[in-house]
Amino acid sequence: MEAQTMSPPVTVPPLELRTVPGAEGSAPEASPLIELEKFSFWYGEKQALFDIDLKVRERSVTAFIGPSGCGKSTLLRCLNRMNDLIDGVRQEGSLRVAGQDLYAADVDVVSVRKRLGMVFQKSNPFPKSIFENVVYGLRIQGERNKTVLRDACESALRGAALWDEVKDRLDESALALSGGQMQRLCIARALAVEPEVVLMDEPCSALDPIATAKIEELIFALKERFTIVIVTHNMQQAARVSDETGFFMLGKLVEFDRTDVIFTRPKEKMTEDYITGRFG
């Protein structure tokens, strides 16, 4: 929970090997954290997702790729029910997180979002100080203890690899940060509430290559503690950071497999065309 645990403990890789025995074989099995079965989704009359079947392993990075409008962002926003904010949406099929149906009638949306944090395409810090941005989620949860907030702020900022850059100006406006720093601040803000899953919606699309590289490193480190689902337009990025990749097309999940499989020997022709850029 604190700074010590943030730095990857050496014992983690073997542990992970134990939880996912024989990972070289075909994709995810054993205790998936997120599980979709025949999940479909509509914006009003328009169907955006068709019968998605998908499993996301715990402490892994899953990437969603595909052309614009293919439904990958929609699916991501379904995972923490951000789509509820839009009028006239509905869904079918099941979406389970740690075994619980996310769309069951008695589910509290607010607690869902606490467990599945989100980082948006456009960094969206609040017009508050850096400190207040990071501890916002904790304040919402009613945390008042200054020491707890300060510690959480530090560990979240360390987790987002931003601490060294901002530790002397926590009280300054978050809007004075650079684009890349702002995005890492948004990641820190999401980490501060200790979610199980971090959903990232094209987190690097507005950043330059250097800032992008930093965030990718960060994703790599975060996977030790969090389950990450990332939507990206950048296929190299998907190849670099993810363990599993899903390719979406017109609201359908065309192919879902280990990343190296998707990028080296995809089963579907469509996937291959898209990945190699031969896509019309």
Partner: peptide, 13 residues
């Protein structure tokens, strides 16, 4: 911006 509200909602507010 809508993003500002979404950020807050996504944090469980």
């Amino acid at each position: 911006p809508r993003g500002m509200r979404e950020a807050s909602l996504a944090l469980g507010a």
